[in-house]
Design a protein around this nucleic acid. Structure first.
Lengths: 191, 191
DNA sequence: CCTACCGATCGGTAGG
DNA sequence: CCTACCGATCGGTAGG
């Protein structure tokens, strides 16, 4: 009655994200990955061409979510403070809902072969630029005190990017509450 | 005339810190490490008993510096705001002056075998508790607005622990300036 | 998707 | 600190 389970490429990429984020890229073997999927390590090569490609695939998923958020917020007509609020809320939700891809994107990109490594670092830079731009406009509009926008962007992203290190789903605070707390904390620093 | 260079255990631990922090523990082989010291990989075992022990040694150096800072600040008679300022300045200086050990302590501890791994995580917890305690006392003294102290400690440490990801010695900002910027940013969030 | 296997590399040891 | 080496494991391929 129940459909026979069949491993798809999506299953492989998801499982790889979990292992890469927990044990690191170099701490994960193809046999480990096969093991959690109930396959031999060599069988994975029916779905992918190599371990490096698998890493790129996981990281690209993470990158796409953050870039999608930045594009959406930047193209809106909201004032800068609302935009910053949207960036923070969106970022928290991405980390909460897709923690493996987010962690791999943030922590394992350095193990990508060139030129992919450089490309991913550029994507992270573009994401940071989105924050910087919103902050700059908010200061220009008199919403926040004057500070170096680049430094403020780094500080805000420091708080957001550390989320994956301590966030636990069973925690008392909902993702929404957490986003509000972070927004208030960082705008306190901007005021 | 010049003394013959001779590799000491300290050289080995320092070089290991550099490689572990740059390439990760599992991305560094004993032969890699020997290579940067001008030795064969097998020669390293005259100085150490194993790769795991080497990781513990690097991490212990990082842990000791942070714990030393926390002990010193907590035992002082300064008011909470001065204590927080001292913690932040001390933390910045540790990261700036000993970035390899700090990064390895922060990022590679999960690869330690048990029970060392748990012990190091407890040290990190104790370090966070120091921040929490200072924040709690500052709030009780009316220096800062009431917020959950644990959450504030996490946010402040998020900014501090992200330092190793972007700090560059050739940057325009001196470590002292940076510490002031961080203090103002996070106390803005506390006010 | 498995079996059988490849050459390369891993952490580590023996003996000097 | 090196040479010579160990068994284990690595990413990956051939063939079915």
């Amino acid at each position: 009655m129940t459909a026979r389970p069949r491993t798809t490429k999506d299953d492989v990429v998801k499982a790889a994200g979990k292992l890469f984020s927990e044990r690191g890229f170099h701490g994960t073997s193809m046999r480990d990955l096969g093991g959690v999927l109930g396959l031999e390590g060599s069988s994975l090569y029916a779905h992918i061409t190599g371990k490096d490609q698998l890493l790129l695939e996981v990281i690209s998923r993470g990158a796409a979510m953050f870039q999608g958020l930045a594009d959406e917020v930047l193209s809106s007509q909201d004032p800068p403070d609302v935009k910053l609020r949207s960036l923070i809320h969106g970022h928290v939700l991405i980390v909460v809902d897709h923690i493996d891809e987010a962690r791999t994107f943030l922590n394992e990109a350095r193990f990508l072969p060139e030129p992919q490594r450089t490309r991913v670092l550029e994507l992270r830079r573009r994401y940071q630029d989105a924050y910087e731009e919103v902050i700059r406009r908010g200061m220009a509009a008199g919403l926040w005190r004057q500070h170096p926008p680049q430094l403020m962007a780094i500080f805000i992203l420091s708080v957001l990017n550390a989320l994956d290190r301590w966030y636990r789903p069973q925690g008392l605070r909902s993702p929404q509450d957490l986003a509000v707390d972070i927004y208030e904390f960082v705008t306190g620093g901007l005021s």
